[in-house]
C-alpha cells in the first residue's frame, strides 16, 4: 500500500493540476489577507470559500484522477499485490497530494503574515483541518463513484451532482423542512440532519468559532448544550472522521469484486 501511495503521490505532485491547485489557494489566501488587511476577516472569508472549494475540487479531482489512472491500475493489478492495498494506497496517494497542495497553498501566506503568533492561530488550524477533511471526504466519494461507473461522463456528472446536493440542495430542503414544521421542536432534528452532510458539519465547526454569540441566542436546551460546550466540537469532529472513513470502506469493498 505504501509503495502505491508513494508513487501516486509523487506522480501527482509533479502534475500541473496539483501545482495549479496549490498556486490557486496561495493566490486566494494571500489575496484575502492583502485586500482585507485584517486577519480575522481573512480567516472568516477563507472559511466560507474552503467549504465549497475543497469539496468541489475534491470531488472533481477524485473522478478525473481515477479515470486517468485506470491503465496504471491495471498494470499494478497484475503485480503480486493485494487489491485493497492497491486501491486504498492509490486513493490515499491522491488525497495526500491534494491535501498537501491545499495546506501549503493556504498555509504559506498565513505563515508569511504571521498568523501563528496572532489570536487567530486556532481558527487557522481549524480552517486547515476542515479543508483537509472536506478534500478527503469528497475525493473519496468521487473515487468510489468512478470505481463504480465505467462511463466517465456519467461518473463525472454524478459526482458533480453529489457535490451540488451536499453544498446547496440539502440545505435548501432542510430550510423548507424547518419552515414547514415551524411549530414543532426541531433542534434535535436539525442537528441530526446536519450530521448527514459533511459540508454542513464543517459549517457547524465554523459557526462554533465565528458565530457562537449568535448561536447562543437560540432558546433550546439541545442547542445550548451542543454549541455551549465542547460537545458540538467533539461530535462534529467525530462525524467528519466517520465521513472520511466510510467511503474508503466502500472503495475497498467495491474494489474486491470489480473486473478490470
Amino acid at each position: 500500500m505504501w509503495k502505491i501511495l508513494k508513487y501516486s503521490f509523487i506522480d501527482l505532485f509533479r502534475s500541473k493540476w496539483i501545482l495549479s491547485y496549490l498556486f490557486f489557494f496561495f493566490i486566494v489566501s494571500e489575496g484575502l489577507i492583502y485586500f482585507n488587511g485584517n486577519l480575522s476577516k481573512s480567516v472568516a472569508s477563507l472559511m466560507n470559500i474552503i467549504l465549497f472549494l475543497c469539496s468541489l475540487i475534491g470531488i472533481m479531482f477524485g473522478t478525473i484522477y481515477y479515470y486517468n489512472s485506470k491503465e496504471f491500475i491495471q498494470l499494478i493489478l497484475a503485480q503480486p499485490l493485494k487489491r485493497s492495498s492497491i486501491f486504498i494506497g492509490h486513493y490515499l496517494g491522491m488525497n495526500l497530494s491534494l491535501v498537501s497542495a491545499f495546506v501549503i497553498g493556504t498555509g504559506l501566506p498565513f505563515l508569511l503574515n504571521g498568523v501563528i503568533f496572532s489570536d487567530f492561530a486556532d481558527s487557522f488550524v481549524l480552517l486547515l483541518l476542515i479543508g483537509v477533511f472536506l478534500t478527503s471526504i469528497f475525493s473519496a466519494i468521487s473515487y468510489y463513484i468512478s470505481l463504480k461507473s465505467e462511463n466517465r461522463i456519467a461518473g463525472f456528472g454524478l459526482s458533480i451532482f453529489i457535490w451540488l446536493f451536499f453544498a446547496v440542495i440539502y440545505d435548501g430542503l432542510l430550510m423548507v423542512a424547518l419552515l414547514y414544521f415551524e411549530d414543532y421542536p426541531l433542534d434535535k432534528f436539525s442537528l441530526i440532519a446536519i450530521m448527514f452532510n459533511p459540508i454542513d458539519i464543517s459549517r457547524i465547526l465554523i459557526l462554533l468559532k465565528l458565530d457562537i454569540s449568535a448561536m447562543m441566542g437560540y432558546s433550546g436546551a439541545v442547542f445550548s448544550k451542543f454549541f455551549g460546550t465542547y460537545l458540538g466540537m467533539s461530535i462534529s469532529m467525530l462525524m467528519l472522521m466517520l465521513w472520511s472513513l466510510v467511503p474508503i470502506i466502500f472503495i475497498n469493498k467495491s474494489a474486491k469484486s470489480k473486473d478490470f
Binding site: 467549504l51 440545505d171 459549517r203 449568535a214 432558546s219
Partner: peptide, 20 residues
C-alpha cells in the same frame, strides 16, 4: 428575517444556499 420567523433555521447560517 427568516430567523426571526423560525429561529431554529439559524443552523443554516453561512450555508451556500443561504448566501444564494
Amino acid at each position: 428575517t427568516v430567523i426571526s420567523d423560525s429561529p431554529v433555521a439559524i443552523i443554516l447560517l453561512r450555508s451556500m444556499f443561504v448566501d444564494m
